[in-house]
Amino acid sequence: MHSIEFTLDDVSDDAVRADWDALLAAGLPSAGAHRSASNRPHVTVLAATSVPDVLQAAATASLGPLLPLPVRWGGLVLFGNRRLVLARLVEVDRALTDVVHGLHEDAVDVAADPHRAWVPHVTLCRRLDPGQVGTALAVLRTVPDVAPTLAGLRRWNPEHRTVTPLAG
């Protein structure tokens, strides 16, 4: 899936990578196992089968001027059922949520699931077995002590395996 994503400031990025490393050290799946240069902590704004130039321009115009944007860490959340995704929620204000929902409305023809609510989060691991949840929660008991900031905006193109900075 193509995506538009917020990236984090360096200190918050380091905090998430520390969580990734702690999961790996505990023998758990971790987003940190993927060592590609394009893999970095991020908050997905929009996932779609394609990102037309007009949608990319709209995202850049509406989200770029908001950066850098202080946000808050939330709790941990699980997505899925048999193989789980463990993520840390990112608490944002209503104004940002409204802008993102507007972009989703603009992307209804290409969005992965245009009727799904936006849940801002940073993925910590994928393919977590339900039996590993307790260990993962014990490893990640504390919330990072740094206040996160959404610092950049980028586009991921999986067909070309490229990241394009858009703002920040």
Rank of each mutant, 00 (worst) to 15 (best):
V146S: 10
R82H: 12
A37F: 12
V85Y: 02
Q56H: 13
A47D: 04
V77H: 01
S36E: 15
L128G: 00
A58K: 13
L86D: 01
V51F: 05
R116H: 14
A57Y: 11
R94Y: 13
L103C: 09
L24S: 15
A26C: 09
C125D: 00
A112C: 11
A117Y: 10
V122D: 01
P29C: 06
L23C: 07
V54M: 10
L76P: 00
V99S: 07
R72C: 06
D113E: 15
R116W: 11
P52D: 08
L89C: 10
D14S: 14
P52S: 10
P68L: 08
V119D: 07
N81I: 06
A138S: 15
C125R: 00
D21M: 10
P114T: 11
R94Q: 14
Q132C: 04
G27C: 06
A136Y: 00
L24A: 15
G32N: 05
G32K: 04
R40P: 07
V100F: 05
P65R: 12
S36T: 15
V139T: 11
L78W: 02
V85I: 14
V85Q: 07
L63C: 11
R83Y: 09
D53Y: 03
L28G: 00
A22V: 06
A26V: 09
T97F: 03
A58C: 14
H121E: 02
R116G: 08
W73V: 00
T135W: 04
G134S: 12
V110P: 04
E105T: 14
Q132R: 06
L24H: 10
L78P: 00
P41I: 09
F79K: 02
G134I: 03
R116E: 15
G80M: 07
N39W: 13
V77G: 03
D21I: 07
P120W: 01
H104R: 15
R83K: 11
T60D: 12
Q132H: 10
N39K: 13
S62F: 08
L63H: 10
N81Y: 09
L140Y: 09
L96H: 06
E91T: 13
V99T: 14
A33Y: 07
A107S: 13
L124Y: 00
E91P: 02
S36C: 12
R35A: 15
H101G: 04
A136M: 04
V143C: 13
P65I: 11
